[in-house]
């Protein structure tokens, strides 16, 4: 428990001080959203209608592309070997690293969502629904991405392969996330139904993904 606490504090500190990990994720998220009005046209009616989908796609890409360094820097400096050889289970190590990573990159996205949603002309109801669905869904994306990051650890061109492997698995999260964000505005589906499924997906990913990611880390680090 003590070792996990130390690892958590170390990851938070390293993430905050090195490479600007947290702020870069939000900036990338912002740029993706800012590109959309150029591609679609500045019509606020259109943008407000597809705003939740834009925020979700941007959130998905920003979360996944930020994850390729999750285990890579630890492998580069050798600390991954020490972590895996320690008596702490690999599954717990993965979970703690993902928690620290989500606090540094996922949570800022969620906090920034209402602000960026305003720029897309979204209604207050859509704003809070999108924010809530991203808060509930990004943990699942982080956990799925951790599997991809573990599978591609040590590969020189791992980033693109990781996206190819993990993005198909993110489809259910995207479906229910956008369904929850779009609920109630002329849609017959109430907010709570897709939102609860989204929470279930996140909980299942938190429970299951550490096992796959830890197995992948052990197999890839031999």
């Amino acid at each position: 428990m003590n070792a996990l606490g130390a690892l958590f504090r170390r990851d938070l500190r390293v993430g905050r001080r090195l490479g600007g990990g947290a702020s870069m994720g939000v900036v990338f998220f912002f740029i993706l959203i800012a590109l959309m009005p150029f591609a679609i046209g500045p019509d606020l009616n259109v943008l407000s209608r597809i705003g939740p989908a834009i925020l979700w796609i941007a959130g998905l890409l920003a979360t996944l592309l930020g994850l390729d360094r999750l285990f890579q820097s630890d492998r580069d400096d050798g600390s991954l070997d020490l972590l895996l050889m320690s008596r702490t289970p690999g599954e717990a190590i993965v979970l703690v690293k993902c928690l620290a990573h989500w606090l540094l990159t996922g949570l800022p996205l969620v906090i920034a969502t209402p602000l960026f949603g305003l720029m897309l002309g979204m209604s207050p109801q859509a704003l809070w629904q999108t924010t809530a669905s991203l808060a509930a869904g990004t943990p699942a994306l982080t956990m799925l991405g951790a599997i991809g990051a573990a599978l591609t650890v040590g590969l020189r061109k791992g980033g693109l392969l990781m996206a190819i492997l993990i993005l198909p698995l993110c489809v259910p999260v995207l479906i229910f996330g956008v369904a929850a964000a779009n609920a109630g505005q002329g849609n017959p589906v109430p907010f709570l139904t897709p939102f609860l499924v989204l929470c279930a997906l996140s909980l299942a990913a938190i429970a299951g993904a550490p096992f796959a990611a830890a197995a992948a880390l052990r197999a890839m680090n031999e």
Partner: peptide, 26 residues
Amino acid sequence: LLYLGLVAVWQTFEDQGRAARAAAIL
């Protein structure tokens, strides 16, 4: 897309033993 990802795994890893374990987990 999952099948294509698995084919990509087999093509990316040089060490076929590692590719087998990565593909198996995926």
